[in-house]
């Protein structure tokens, strides 16, 4: 059978078009890394690696160091994950083991919708609705109960670490629970039924079968959530309050790398300041790349079928 001209050029055309598009995606990632590092060049040659551990940030004297912001990023991210991970695992267990079949889907969709709320809306809600509640009820309660720990002994304030941590928790939960849920769904039914047949209660079955079977996947999902919390800028910048000084006070204002970039980039006055903010962005980019690679490699090794781009349909 003779093929028409369109058929002869159609195949190679579609093949090369799609290949080109995929190459463009790879090139885009490389270009992002290059452009961000390129902008950080001036600050890097000025401060070198000491930028990472120096904590002076002063646009007037043109002295820039990232330590305080990196500390803020670390504290908010880890605290958020500390709350979000157990909660997400519990939600995933509820959705896979506990909930009646009819409500699994709707509840699952609602939890996923939490991720659809724009960060600027969550930030607005955080500063106007959540913060006053924290200031009046939660912070005094925490202070009177745990005030002997320096973390909880500080002056209460409407903006600061605590609202930022809670907002990041809200952002991380849908990601961790979505992936964890998919991991739980891969646990073989015979193993679970075997445990139940041996007389285990449902929780014992979860503890002895579901959790050990899913351990790797859960770790991967949690790191994925960490990656999300790490880079959030807008919502955090709206509630965290901005300061240049480290404090162990959970209630007081602080700052993170992402939120500092968001709040200062446009008003930056010197090229060194802009470059220093790009340096912050470069650090953030490296952290995000490493965290995401680790998370996705872990999930992929244990569960090759589970897509690790949250927010896409499953």
């Amino acid at each position: 059978m003779r093929r028409g001209l369109t058929d002869r050029i159609g195949d190679p055309t579609l093949r090369s078009l799609t290949t080109l598009a995929s190459l463009a995606a790879v090139a885009l990632l490389v270009l992002i890394v290059y452009k961000v590092f390129d902008q950080a060049g001036e600050a890097f040659s000025h401060f070198g690696l000491s930028f990472v551990w120096e904590s002076e940030w002063n646009p007037v004297t043109k002295q820039f160091g990232a330590a305080d912001f990196l500390y803020g990023t670390a504290v908010t991210t880890f605290a958020a994950i500390l709350i979000a991970a157990p909660m997400s695992i519990a939600i995933a267990l509820f959705l896979t083991e506990l909930a009646p079949r009819q409500i699994r889907r709707p509840v699952g969709v609602l939890v996923e919708l939490l991720a659809a709320i724009p960060s600027v809306v969550l930030g607005l809600w955080g500063i106007i609705v959540l913060s006053p509640v924290l200031l009046k009820t939660i912070e005094p309660a925490l202070k009177s109960a745990l005030g002997w720990i320096p973390l909880f002994s500080g002056e209460a304030s409407p903006v600061g670490l605590l609202p930022a941590i809670l907002i990041l928790t809200i952002m991380a939960v849908p990601i961790i629970s979505a992936v964890t849920r998919e991991v739980f769904e891969t646990v073989p039914g015979d193993l679970k039924e075997g445990a139940l047949a041996l007389g285990a209660t449902r929780w014992e079955m979860v503890k002895m079968v579901v959790l050990p079977y899913s351990r790797t996947g859960i770790v991967g999902a949690t790191i994925l959530g960490l990656g999300r919390a790490l880079g959030e800028a807008i919502a955090v910048t709206m509630v965290i309050g901005h300061t240049e000084h480290i404090s162990a006070n959970l209630f007081g204002p602080a700052d993170t790398a992402a939120s500092r970039i968001a709040s200062e980039y446009l008003g930056a006055t010197s090229s060194l300041q802009i470059s220093s903010l790009a340096y912050l962005a470069a650090i953030l980019l490296v952290l995000a790349l490493v965290v995401n690679m680790i998370a996705r490699l872990i999930v992929r090794r244990a569960h090759p079928k589970i897509p690790t781009t949250p927010g896409i349909l499953r």
């Binding site: 995606a25 790879v26 885009l28 990632l29 270009l31 992002i32 452009k35 961000v36 390129d38 902008q39 990656g227 790490l230 880079g231 959030e232 800028a233 807008i234 992402a258 970039i261 968001a262 980039y265 903010l277 790009a278 962005a281 953030l284 980019l285 995000a288 790349l289 965290v291 995401n292 690679m293 996705r296 897509p307 690790t308 781009t309 949250p310 927010g311």
Partner: peptide
């Protein structure tokens, strides 16, 4: 690569496109 691209913080995307 797409998954990693999805993990790039959006504020960094902003800096990238600015540059």
């Amino acid at each position: 690569v797409l998954d990693i691209l999805n993990g790039v913080p959006t504020i960094v995307t902003g800096i990238f496109v600015f540059g």
